[in-house]
């Protein structure tokens, strides 16, 4: 059901697809940690096409491929090379398609990964296109929740911070609603979730502006960064950012088994004293990116 499949948008995947990815990812964890060796993708080449830099995502895909014994070619920021000078994305993809077995693409324009998938014979994995989709991030976010609680259904998940521009929270909100989570949205009024995302969600989320409304009964806090650039007035920024930060004090009001997630990098929205609490899961979440990407690579290449 997976061989040759493009992973462009989370909505390309059924519940069965997601379950299968998670099942394979679980088996990949010892290999991702380096405890077990694998030659599963020996002889396969991954093309890592980063039309804009994103070091974390790129390294995560590279690690995934290398841990499975595969090889990598690629570039970051092609304007520095002569590769794409004046060339259409379609032409670049047609060329790379002939060199590789699977393509990972990160691009500043929305819809670029869908276009790449149309021109490539080999499977294409979207590693983020503009403000659009970033399905491997969404999958690792959901995987983190499932590994902690065993399920998503019925959990109270609060997405907080910048819900307007935050790339990762849009597809996550939609996916969580389809998986049966009780989604709550917490943000300043100027950074509310866009209406088109709310429309795509399966059930209407509850909307909040004060953290006190959700702090005591949320199971999963998904925190995103509020960027300074979004506020013309710096004092306004400091005030807003402060009221949506998770600190050692806020943590004390949380449920005993509540977890805190963050797509990283974090700045001030989670203070360092939270890292050592039992609630912090953001580093584990980042690690899960590797087994999730290993699972996706092995599945779309048809070796599993």
């Amino acid at each position: 059901m997976f061989k040759g499949k493009d992973i462009v948008s989370i909505s390309d995947l059924t519940k069965e697809h997601i379950d299968r990815i998670f099942e394979v990812a679980r088996g990949m964890i010892p290999i991702a940690k380096g405890e077990k060796k694998s030659k599963l993708l020996d002889g396969y080449i991954l093309a890592n096409l980063f039309f804009e830099p994103s070091t974390r995502t790129r390294l995560s895909f590279e690690t995934a491929m290398l841990r499975l014994g595969g090889s990598i070619l690629g570039f970051t920021n092609p304007s520095a090379t002569s590769l794409t000078k004046g060339e259409t994305l379609a032409d670049t993809i047609r060329m790379i398609d002939a060199y590789s077995d699977v393509i990972v693409i990160r691009h500043p324009l929305e819809g670029a990964a869908r276009l790449a998938a149309e021109f490539a014979e080999v499977p294409v994995i979207n590693a983020g296109d503009g403000a659009g989709q970033h399905p491997t991030q969404t999958l690792l976010d959901i995987f983190t929740i499932v590994e902690e609680f065993g399920h998503v259904e019925g959990l109270k998940v609060t997405l907080m911070g910048d819900l307007r521009y935050g790339r990762t929270v849009h597809s996550l909100a939609v996916a969580l609603s389809f998986l049966g989570a009780d989604v709550h949205l917490l943000s300043p009024r100027s950074l509310k979730m866009p209406r088109h995302v709310l429309r795509e969600m399966k059930s209407k989320p509850e909307i909040h502006e004060q953290i006190d409304e959700v702090i005591r009964d949320t199971d999963v806090f998904y925190v995103t960064r509020i960027q300074k650039e979004r506020f013309p007035d710096p004092t306004e920024y400091i005030k807003v950012a402060g009221s949506y930060a998770i600190t050692g004090d806020t943590v004390k009001k949380m449920k005993k088994d509540a977890i805190i997630m963050h797509p990283l990098p974090r700045v001030n929205e989670i203070t360092p004293d939270v890292d050592s609490t039992l609630h912090a899961r953001y580093f584990k979440q980042a690690f899960y990116g590797v087994p999730i990407r290993m699972a996706i690579l092995a599945l779309v290449l048809g070796v599993i």
């Binding site: 259409t88 994305l89 379609a90 691009h107 500043p108 324009l109 929305e110 819809g111 670029a112 869908r114 276009l115 149309e118 296109d129 503009g130 403000a131």
Partner: peptide
């Protein structure tokens, strides 16, 4: 209508 959409670039689609 999205100026950042790939279809508004010089692409053969």
């Amino acid at each position: 209508m999205n100026p950042r959409c790939i279809t508004n670039q010089r692409e053969p689609i």
